[in-house]
């Protein structure tokens, strides 16, 4: 028996919105520790990894580890039937064919339940090395979203350069080129969540497809901060912490000069 209850049901809506344009089908693995999901996009350029700890749920029970093969677009359709303030409960048997979703309005006046058919999905599970990154940038997620959106109008590839002074996002295209530099905040600058912080061992420059960075920014509503982890010649990690429960991390392979 698997049962997981989230008072803030809208969180689940936001998580699926953040993944479903990149990944069509995925296995969500449920264990005593919580929910995890790892999936590549259809072109195998990027990888999305979701982690939700059991302690972040209001109620969590998982007697036996199970894998839920989900069509994320269809799950998104069902979650659209939940109100933004609804409590959402997920339920499945030990050898499930379906996932039951129950939505309760805050005053308990409306209770609905839906069953989503599960799928057998064969996926390749990749081992992600525990890497110490040369640069870690923490910045407001809305700022990152704006930069990616603005630069995507000009070209396809973004050059991200991280130095001690700041992070430079550069793009060039048929109409011209552009750069946006965000500088490290001084300690006196406003709220913690509005700050740009850079931890750097050595400067890093890498090229990335803006199209994929754009997919990742669908996770912006999940939190005020995004973290970018970069080292030379390895995928960037775009990590969105989800307050109190876990995170979504996206890994994107760099573009390499031929």
């Amino acid at each position: 028996m698997f049962e997981a209850r989230l008072t803030e049901g809208s969180l689940l809506k936001k998580i699926i919105e953040a993944i479903k344009d990149l990944v069509q089908e995925a296995n969500v693995d449920c264990s005593e520790e919580g929910l995890t999901m790892q999936a590549m996009d259809a072109s195998h350029v990027s990888l999305c990894s979701l982690n939700m700890r059991h302690g972040g749920f209001d109620h969590y029970r998982c007697d036996r580890s199970i894998s839920l093969g989900l069509n994320l677009a269809n799950l998104g359709k069902i979650l659209k039937c939940a109100g933004n303030d609804d409590v959402v409960t997920l339920k499945a048997e030990d050898e499930p064919d379906t996932l039951t979703l129950m939505f309760e309005s805050p005053n308990q006046e409306r209770i609905s339940d839906f069953e989503l058919k599960l799928m057998d999905i064969e996926t390749e599970h990749l081992g992600i090395p525990n890497e110490e990154y040369k640069c870690t940038i923490s910045m407001p997620s809305g700022e990152f979203q704006r930069i990616v959106r603005d630069l995507a109008v000009i070209g396809e590839t973004c050059i991200i350069t991280c130095t001690k002074e700041g992070v430079k996002f550069s793009v060039s295209g048929d109409l011209g080129n552009g750069n946006v530099t965000v500088r490290q905040s001084s300690a006196a600058d406003g709220d913690e969540k509005d700050q740009v912080k850079i931890q750097m061992e050595e400067p890093v420059t890498l090229n990335f497809a803006l199209r994929y960075l754009g997919f990742f920014t669908k996770a912006t509503p999940l939190g005020s901060t995004v973290k970018l982890h970069m080292s030379p010649d390895v995928p960037i990690v775009v990590e969105y912490p989800i307050d109190g429960i876990g995170s979504i991390s996206y890994f994107l392979a760099p573009k390499i000069d031929e």
């Binding site: 590549m40 072109s43 195998h44 350029v45 990027s46 990888l47 390749e124 599970h125 990749l126 081992g127 992600i128 090395p129 590839t157 090229n207 497809a209 390895v234 995928p235 890994f251 994107l252 392979a253 760099p254 573009k255 390499i256 000069d257 031929e258």
Partner: peptide
């Protein structure tokens, strides 16, 4: 001209 690499080039199958 830069070319896109694949994620499986960096992370091995478990």
């Amino acid at each position: 001209m830069s070319s896109q690499t694949s994620i499986s080039r960096y992370f091995r199958s478990k």
